Amino acid sequence: MNRFTVEEMNLLHIYHDSSRQELVGNINAALPFMEPDMRGLAARTLAKIDALTEAEYAELAVYAADEV
């Protein structure tokens, strides 16, 4: 079961780094430059990332998603 929407997966792909902490840092650093609707998407995505364990994050396949 995929916990992330297409939009969230694309956001993860853009800011993905070697660790969960770096990913979160990258998104948080970009927040002030995002449009309000993107900030909402980023906040929801960060909440989902925060809920993952390190093992779950390690298994997360981060890729650019296509809307089907």
Rank of each mutant, 00 (worst) to 15 (best):
E59K: 14
F4M: 07
V6E: 06
E7S: 09
A65T: 06
E22A: 06
A64C: 14
S18W: 08
M9F: 11
F4N: 01
A64K: 15
R3S: 12
G40M: 12
E8S: 08
T5A: 09
A61S: 09
K48G: 02
A65Q: 12
L60C: 04
A29D: 06
F4W: 05
R20V: 01
I49V: 15
L41D: 02
N2G: 11
M38N: 14
Y57G: 06
Y57I: 02
P32L: 01
H16N: 12
E7A: 12
A65E: 13
F33E: 09
T45E: 05
L12I: 07
D37K: 14
D66C: 04
R44K: 14
V24E: 12
L23A: 00
T45M: 07
A29M: 12
A29E: 08
D50W: 11
E7Q: 15
E35R: 12
L46H: 01
N2D: 15
E67W: 11
Q21F: 05
A30R: 01
G25M: 09
A30G: 04
G25T: 09
R39D: 01
G40F: 06
V6I: 10
A47R: 08
T45P: 11
A64F: 14
D50V: 04
R3F: 10
R44E: 06
Y63V: 13
Y57E: 00
I49D: 00
E56G: 03
A64W: 09
A58D: 06
Y15Q: 01
R39A: 06
A42K: 04
V62R: 00
H16Y: 06
T5K: 12
M38V: 07
H13A: 05
L31P: 00
M38K: 13
E7W: 05
H16C: 10
E67L: 09
D50A: 10
E7F: 04
R3Q: 10
E56R: 13
L41Q: 04
I49S: 00
L60P: 00
T45V: 06
F4K: 02
M9E: 04
A61T: 13
F4R: 04
A55Q: 15
V68N: 05
A58F: 02
S18Q: 15
L41E: 04
L23M: 05
H16I: 08
G25V: 11
A55I: 15
T5V: 10
I49F: 09
R39L: 01
L12C: 13
T45R: 02
N28A: 14
T5Y: 06
A30V: 02
T5L: 09
D50S: 05
R20W: 01
S19V: 01
F33D: 05
S19L: 04
Y57V: 03
L12Q: 03
L11D: 00
H16D: 12
Q21K: 14
L23S: 00
M34F: 07
L12E: 02
L46E: 02
Y57T: 03
A64P: 02
Q21M: 10
A42E: 04
E8F: 03
I14W: 05
E67K: 13
M38Q: 10
D17L: 09
D37I: 12
A43D: 12
D66W: 06
